[in-house]
């Protein structure tokens, strides 16, 4: 059994969610998928460790989960859309998670995003044809 290497494996700071990842983290993502239901979110909230054991998470996945270590969860194969089903109902937005991935504050993360809009109107005017109110 061997997994094919992909060019996208070499993009820095990026964990492309493919068959290899999805296969290895099936139990983890199945647990995260269960959070579509309120009763499951509540059950998890009462005893996260027991809930993780019920879904058969590996020791490393369990540890990352209990430590709220979102980058490690991504490295261990959590799909980011599924991870949000864990974090968002617990008050951790996708931007809080983004900041955590980079080890910066959410405000710093948001400021980086806002900086992408600098000079936007001028750029659009140069290109022409864009609506601007």
């Amino acid at each position: 059994m061997s997994w094919k290497k992909h060019r996208y494996d070499d993009i820095p700071g990026t964990y492309v969610f493919d068959g290899k990842t999805s296969h290895a983290a099936y139990a983890l993502n199945k647990m995260l998928f269960s959070f579509n239901h309120q009763e499951n979110r509540e059950e998890f909230g009462r005893d996260p460790r027991a809930y993780a054991i019920k879904f058969g998470l590996s020791d490393m996945q369990k540890q990352a989960l209990l430590n709220n270590d979102y980058l490690e969860l991504i490295r261990l194969g959590a799909n980011v859309y599924y991870l949000a089903k864990l974090t968002v109902p617990r008050g951790v937005s996708i931007q809080d998670a983004g900041a955590a991935f980079q080890g910066i504050t959410t405000e710093e993360f948001k400021a980086k995003l806002a900086s992408k809009g600098k000079g936007l109107i001028e750029k659009l005017e140069q290109q022409g044809g864009f609506w601007n109110g």
Binding site: T14, I74, G98, L120, L124
Partner: peptide, 15 residues
């Protein structure tokens, strides 16, 4: 959304 590269926006590519 994910990994250390989270937060990239590429205006030139979008346009």
């Amino acid at each position: 959304l994910q990994g250390e590269r989270a937060g990239i926006i590429n205006v030139d590519f979008d346009l």
